[in-house]
Amino acid sequence: MTKLKIALIDYGAGNIQSVQNALNRLGYQAVLTHDPAIITKADKVIFPGVGQASYAMKQLKNYQLDTLIPQLKQDFLGICLGMQLMCNKTEENNTEGLGVFPIDVLKFNHQLKIPHMGWNTLQHNKTPLFKGVKNGEFAYFVHSFYVPISTYTIAQTDYGLNFSAAIQKDNFYATQFHPEKSSQTGLNILKNFLSL
């Protein structure tokens, strides 16, 4: 196992074990924690999320992570709901987010099926997070809300409209898709994040 200290934020949000499993596959072991001291000292922080926004924000506040996360300096990766919570606010129960990205998360409002569930293609801007990933490779998505395209967008996907599949601001990275469920493409992206 590699010595990299990875904190995997555990705030009661669904299937966190699959992120740990993916890290194990890459030869890493993360600490599952909601302890601000451990998170602050980690080399990399991963903020997964499956579930419901207002419940998740309540949990983050309980653990005082809502104030800590925006101040973190190390590489930070939000996944799915984690990405949406890193924005200003989300239309999901009109929940206030962490405000790392000054963007509002919107609900899909078109005739296509919701949730957007399944494998969809990535078009990315060749940033280091997507090193070795070809445009058009598939990643696994499950979501009903989306982050619109902005200056922070580093990858996009088309589902009735183009939305942000990944965003970045300084040390903060986030993906709408689940790299931990996206077969080899997802493993490459996780590996790239850990190698940043």
């Binding site: 699959s18 499956v50 419901q52 419940y55 949730p115 499950v142």
Partner: peptide
């Protein structure tokens, strides 16, 4: 928590439709 992404319910959902809502509220509709 053991790692399944989704659960599938069949007869139990017919007998107790509220079960659908309970799981969706906790883990999301997906």
């Amino acid at each position: 928590y053991a790692g399944a992404d989704k659960v599938s319910i069949n007869s139990a959902a017919v007998r107790n439709p509220d079960l659908i809502t309970q799981i969706a509220d906790r883990f999301g509709a997906q």
